[in-house]
């Protein structure tokens, strides 16, 4: 299989436009699994690990720009972890330390799994996805980027360049339920923020619907919020858990998260 390794974003975008059959790859923690299981047979791989514009993160007047290549291990590091605490907590739940060293936020967005651990924390911070192509750069609200199970709004010639987010400063947390105490795919997950400034409660669930979903309410609705989130979710029965359990767990998680973030 051909592996193409562009050295600049511009080169990467040109290759992407010229050969849409190339599968973009960063840490490979999802792509390589698909290749191993023969679920995908792309004509080649577009290796984005050598593209400097996708690395690191920066802050400009309160707006964070996070490169798509940022790994979960980097997300866990301060000061970024203090700025997006729920995202850092989510990163800690991803796989093993080895996977956290390889897996990236860009890859999580690209896979667009209902169980993607970084997605609920980004949703409660109303993050935008930065999509680049030879045609230019556009941003799309994460909610609109996620279209369905493992489906996103990426055009055939586009690459996920990064994430733009204005951290709310709200108290927030992330929780993930799995039958094992580490290295699990979420049976159900939750990110929740209590945004005093905007008097808003924001919750986003994972693994409880075709896409991670955002649910909001005013801080005055604290009592009914667990039920509201549980009712908004659209869980199914699958081999990892039942719909009834997922809804129940969401209710419990929202209650605990509110307690944790209320002070």
């Amino acid at each position: 299989m051909e592996v193409v390794s562009p050295r600049t974003l511009e080169e990467a975008l040109r290759l992407r436009a010229a050969e849409p059959g190339l599968m973009p790859i960063e840490g490979g923690t999802d792509v390589m699994v698909d290749l191993n299981f023969d679920r995908r047979r792309p004509v080649g791989l577009l290796n984005l690990n050598e593209v400097p514009e996708l690395r690191g993160w920066s802050r400009d007047d309160g707006l964070l720009r996070i490169g798509a290549s940022l790994t979960y291990a980097q997300v866990r590091q301060r000061p970024l972890a203090d700025t997006l605490p729920a995202l850092a907590e989510a990163a800690r739940t991803v796989g093993s330390p080895q996977i956290q060293n390889r897996g990236t936020l860009g890859g999580n967005l690209g896979t667009a799994s209902p169980a993607g651990d970084s997605l609920p924390p980004l949703l409660i911070e109303r993050a935008d996805v930065e999509l680049a192509s030879v045609r230019g750069v556009r941003t799309l609200a994460l909610e609109r980027f996620l279209l369905g199970p493992k489906r996103n709004a990426l055009a055939a010639d586009e690459l996920i360049a990064g994430i733009r987010v204005r951290p709310s400063g709200a108290r927030q947390t992330f929780m993930k339920v799995g039958p094992r105490n580490a290295m699990v795919i979420a049976v159900v997950s939750l990110a929740l923020a209590v945004d005093r400034e905007r008097e808003e409660l924001r919750a986003a669930y994972g693994s409880a619907g075709p896409v991670p979903g955002l649910v909001t309410a005013s801080t005055g609705e604290r009592e009914t919020f667990p039920e509201l989130v549980a009712a908004a979710a659209e869980p199914i029965d699958d081999l990892r858990g039942t719909a009834a359990y997922r809804r129940h767990a969401l209710r419990v998680l929202v209650g605990r998260a509110l307690e944790r973030c209320w002070a």
């Binding site: 800690r92 929780m175 339920v177 105490n181 998680l253 944790r260």
Partner: peptide, 9 residues
């Protein structure tokens, strides 16, 4: 219980 999932204090 729940380990790295951070579900309970």
């Amino acid at each position: 219980p729940g380990g790295s999932g951070n579900v309970t204090r």
